[in-house]
Simulated scan of single mutants.
Amino acid sequence: MIHTGKFIVIEGLEGAGKSTAVSIVKSCIEQAGHSLICTREPGGTAMAEAIRECVKKDWQNETVTTEAELLLMYAARAQLLHNVIHPALAAGDWVLGDRHDMSSQAYQGGGREIPQALIQPLRDITLKGFVPHFTFYLDVEPSVGLQRARGRGELDRIEQLDISFFERTRARYLSLAKQDDNCVVINTMQPIESVHQDIQFAIQQFLAV
């Protein structure tokens, strides 16, 4: 499929400030004159949102297996790509995603320690080589991020996991970001004004290309 729009993704742990980053990047893209659609993962379509509820819900006495969690993530992603992202990009719209495939590689691959050999076939089936044009990884110490997340209210099933899970997830995020020339790492533990400035600078640099 030929795309004329651009796909920008914002990644990060809980409490990294993704919502604020989405707002800043959205404003810069729209000011540059581009039509923009915002998405979130898992979610973004009726079916994908139902899958999101399955993923985040505490199923009480039923254990959600790592395999089920992984498959649900890619099922939701398949729906979003086919029904929203690809059509929007083909029409020339830009898409700004709150999470995408890097999340699955970090959370399920890093945090859950699912081998890449098991994840890669799902990536091949779902993505077919499709990657974002630009990614922001908002980096935060897990303890800091989770403290911020608790300040927003009750934590979901994944947010309640042990700190070691998030430490593994962060380590995988940093590794993936280092390997991706189209990814910029934003230190969200610096003063908020500096965080905003770094985000604005990065998106403006991308827009200027």
Rank of each mutant, 00 (worst) to 15 (best):
E193Q: 14
G92I: 12
C28T: 02
V209R: 13
G33R: 08
I125F: 15
Q105V: 00
Q79K: 12
Q108C: 10
K128N: 13
A90W: 07
V184R: 15
E49H: 04
E154F: 00
V95E: 00
L72P: 06
K178W: 02
A46M: 06
S143M: 06
V84N: 10
M73S: 03
T65R: 05
A75R: 12
A50Y: 05
S194N: 13
E167W: 00
A117H: 10
G43C: 08
G33F: 09
T66Y: 00
Y137K: 03
V131T: 14
L80Y: 11
D93H: 15
V209H: 14
K18H: 06
R172H: 08
N83I: 00
A88S: 15
V9I: 12
R52D: 06
P115G: 02
E141H: 12
Q179K: 14
D180C: 11
A90L: 02
I2L: 11
G129F: 06
I8T: 10
A32W: 03
E49C: 01
D181A: 13
F201T: 13
P115R: 12
N61V: 11
A149W: 08
G111D: 03
D98I: 11
I119G: 09
L72R: 11
Q147S: 15
E67C: 07
L70T: 15
Q105E: 10
L80W: 09
I8P: 02
K178S: 14
P142S: 10
P121L: 09
Q120T: 15
S143A: 15
I119E: 08
R40D: 01
V144W: 01
I114L: 12
